[in-house]
Design a binder for these strands. Structure first.
Lengths: 202, 202
DNA sequence: CTAGGCTGCCTAAAACCTTTAGGCAAACGC
DNA sequence: GCGTTTGCCTAAAGGTTTTAGGCAGCCTAG
C-alpha cells in the first residue's frame, strides 16, 4: 500500500485548485479525497471537518493574495501604488476565481486576526501615505478602498457588468482615476443635519 | 391527511426566513420541508431541485430590495437620493443577512435578465440624473456606485470593520459624502500612458 | 538489523441531504 | 356523484460527512 503523503497543506492546495476549476461551493472533502485517489476517511486525520478544509483554503488564498500585493507595492507610492494594489486583487480574482471566493469566507474572529487579512488592511493603509489624510479620515478611506476593490471585483466576476456597453477595463481605469482624485481632495464632513439613524434591526 | 398548501412561492419565503435565521448556506430542501412538517419528497413537485430553491430565494430578495429602493427613491434626487438608496441596501443587509446573501447568488444570464437586478441597475442610474454626467461616464459611475454599495455592505456584514476604531456609521456617512463630491466633479481620464493590460487568464 | 511503536491510510457504519419513481387520497370540474 | 387532476406520501438509491477501529509501512532504539 503506497502512502499518498497527505498533509493539511497539500489538501488545502488541492482544494484551492479544485475551487478554481469547479467553484469554491463544489469543494468537498470527498472531491479532494478523490483527487488524491484516497478514501474520504483518510482526510480526517489531517482535517478536523469540512469547515476546516474550507478555512484552510481561505487562509491560503488570503496569504497568496497578500504576498502578491506586497510584491506589487514594493517601490511604488501614490497613484502607482493604488493601481498596482487594485490590479492585484482584480487579476487574482480573474486567474483564481475559486480562491478569490474562498478568501471571502467568513472566518471566526480569532482565525481572522491570525490571518493575512490584517496584512491586507495594513497594505491598503500604506497606500494612503501618498495622500494627505489623517485619522480618522484615513480609516474611512481604507474602508472605502476596500469596499471598492472588493465590490468591483465581485460584481465583475459575477458577470454583473456583462450587459451594458463600455468595456470593463475602461471602467476600472476610470474608477481608479476617480479614487485617486478623491483621495487628493477628501471632502470634510457634510454640514447638513445628520440624517435620522437607520432602522436598526432589533 | 391535511394538505400543507405548498407552493413554490411559499417555499421560497420559508427559505428566505430560514436564511435570515441560520444563514443562506444552511438553507436546504430538507430544512424547508421540516419547517412545513412535510416530507422532503413533497417539495419536489414544486421545485425542480435544490438550486431552484436557492434561485427563488435570490429572486425574492432581489425583488424585495428593489421595491424598498423604489420607495426610498420616490421624490428624492441628488445627494438625498444617493444616501436613501445606499441606506436601503445597508439596512436590508442588516435586517435580512440571509436574504442579502441570497441576492448575491450567481444567476444564469436568462434568469438574471428577467430578475429585479435590472431594476436595481436602472435605479442607480436614475440617481445620476442629479449629477452632470453623460455617457460613458454615467455607466462608469453606475458601476462605481454598485461596487461601493455592495462592497461596503458585504465587508461590514462579514465583520471586516469590527476591529478598527471609528464607528461604521460615521464611515458610511463620510463615504456617501465623498461619493457625492466625486460625482459632482467626476474627473476626466488620466492622461498618463495606459498601463499594460492585465494578464488575462487563458 | 530487527522489535517496537507510531502514523497513515484502510474498511465499516451511521446520519443526513438530494433526487426519482410510483401510489393513494383529497380537491376540483362537470 | 364521478372522474381527473393534483398534492403529499412511502420507498429507494446515491452522495457527503463524520466517527471508530484495524492493519501495515516506516522510524527509532537497542
Amino acid at each position: 500500500m503506497v502512502r499518498a503523503g497527505l498533509t493539511a497543506e497539500r489538501l488545502a492546495l488541492a482544494g484551492a485548485e479544485l475551487a478554481d476549476e469547479v467553484g469554491f461551493e463544489q469543494v468537498t472533502v470527498s472531491a479532494v479525497a478523490r483527487r488524491f485517489g484516497v478514501t474520504v476517511a483518510s482526510l480526517y486525520s489531517h482535517l478536523r471537518n469540512s469547515q476546516d478544509l474550507r478555512t484552510r483554503i481561505a487562509l491560503l488564498a488570503l496569504d497568496e493574495l497578500a504576498t502578491r500585493a506586497a510584491d506589487a507595492l514594493a517601490g511604488r507610492s501614490g497613484r502607482d501604488a493604488l493601481t498596482a494594489l487594485a490590479n492585484v486583487y482584480r487579476d487574482y480574482a480573474r486567474e483564481h476565481p475559486g480562491r478569490y471566493a474562498a478568501a471571502q469566507l467568513r472566518l471566526d474572529p480569532a482565525t481572522a486576526a491570525a490571518s493575512a487579512g490584517v496584512r491586507h488592511a495594513r497594505m491598503i493603509r500604506s497606500i494612503l501615505r501618498g495622500y494627505d489624510l489623517t485619522e480618522p479620515d484615513q480609516t474611512h478611506a481604507v474602508r472605502l478602498l476596500g469596499s471598492v476593490f472588493h465590490g468591483y471585483v465581485s460584481l465583475e466576476l459575477a458577470g454583473g457588468f456583462d450587459h451594458s456597453a463600455p468595456d470593463t477595463q475602461e471602467t476600472w481605469t476610470r474608477i481608479l482615476d476617480a479614487l485617486d482624485a478623491l483621495l487628493h481632495t477628501w471632502p470634510p464632513p457634510d454640514p447638513r443635519p445628520a440624517p435620522p439613524p437607520p432602522p436598526t434591526p432589533r
